[in-house]
């Protein structure tokens, strides 16, 4: 048992590389900020250090809306060759990484611990995936455990590497707001995704918008802002009459429960449930917490 842990440690140790300020591989944008780290430790595809970077950040506690938006934005960016930077925290950060990886693009996780440590632990699988298909980055030497004050510190790297920081969903006192502030101080652009004003999950982002940060009204807004080609209209999958009806309702109304859909269509659940299920199986809609919404593809 002991030997296995040792072996694993050595395996990770062997993968860790370093880059110092001033070396050609050191991210150029990061070099511009005043308190840039002297040394960066990293695991993964080093060519991502030279890519255009956009950070997608947000709270750890989230709603479906936040999670799906983070995924969609990160996916659209990654598809166009932008490296999506985030902090690998649970919630929005993890969704951003997943979105980028699912789109087959690159993503950079900037950690507040050593690069050999997985925090939070439940993200072990995600970290493996980022190690092999993206980049794990930290200013802390390997073996550094998580500490409270590391995380706001590393946020300056997230915003510093990126030409643009997008805050997807933030509560009132979220670390993502610190990142947004840092980005502004560093002279970088910030966008925020507006949310339901009744919901506590969106107070932080809505406040940013009130203070003058530009709002993201669609994924295309982000692409346009960066001068990237807009998403083309995807061909609608062939749907039956009743499937198309439900598709349109969800496209208009956002997320809905089966009961709401029944009410709108004046239909019985026995008619609606099989259709919802087959739409879900086709990947056109998804569900969470009992509600259905269009899958972001």
């Amino acid at each position: 048992m002991d030997r296995r842990i040792e072996n694993k440690d050595r395996r990770i140790e062997n993968m860790i590389r370093t880059v110092s300020a001033g070396q050609p591989l050191y991210p150029a944008m990061l070099q511009d900020i005043r308190d840039h780290p002297k040394t960066l430790y990293y695991i993964g595809r080093e060519e991502l250090l030279k890519e255009r970077c956009v950070s997608v950040v947000g709270s750890r506690t989230t709603t479906n809306y936040g999670r799906n938006t983070a995924r969609a934005i990160a996916g659209a960016l990654a598809e166009r060759g932008i490296a999506v930077v985030s902090g690998m925290a649970s919630g929005i950060d993890s969704c951003a990484h997943r979105g980028a990886l699912e789109a087959g693009g690159g993503t950079i996780a900037v950690l507040g611990t050593g690069v050999d440590i997985c925090y939070p632990r439940e993200n072990a699988q995600l970290k493996e995936a980022i190690q092999s298909r993206g980049l794990i980055l930290s200013e802390y030497p390997p073996g550094t455990p998580a500490a409270r004050y590391h995380f706001p510190q590393r946020n300056r790297i997230i915003s510093g590497m990126s030409e643009l920081t997008i805050v997807v969903q933030a509560r009132l006192r979220s670390g993502a707001l610190i990142t947004a502030e840092l980005a502004a101080d560093q002279g970088r652009d910030v966008l925020a995704v507006p949310g339901n004003i009744d919901s506590q999950y969106n107070i932080g982002t809505n406040q940013l918008i009130r203070e003058g940060v530009q709002a993201v009204t669609s994924v295309n807004d982000v692409l346009e802002y960066l001068g990237l080609p807009r998403a083309g209209q995807r061909p609608m999958p062939s749907l039956s009459e009743s499937e198309a009806q439900i598709y349109r309702l969800l496209a208009e109304g956002g997320e809905m429960s089966p009961d709401e859909l029944c009410l709108r269509l004046s239909r019985q659940p026995r008619y609606l449930l099989p259709i919802l299920s087959s739409l879900e199986l086709k990947g056109i809609i998804t569900s969470a917490a009992g509600k259905f919404f269009l899958a972001k593809r």
Binding site: G91, S94, R98, N123, R270, S277, A288
Partner: peptide, 23 residues
């Protein structure tokens, strides 16, 4: 029939529903 299976598939929880994948 396929529709019966479709409906039956609705009566289960996904990992997201029980907070397994909050992210």
């Amino acid at each position: 029939e396929p529709d019966h299976l479709s409906e039956a598939l609705m009566y289960r929880f996904s990992e997201e529903d029980i907070g397994k994948r909050r992210s």
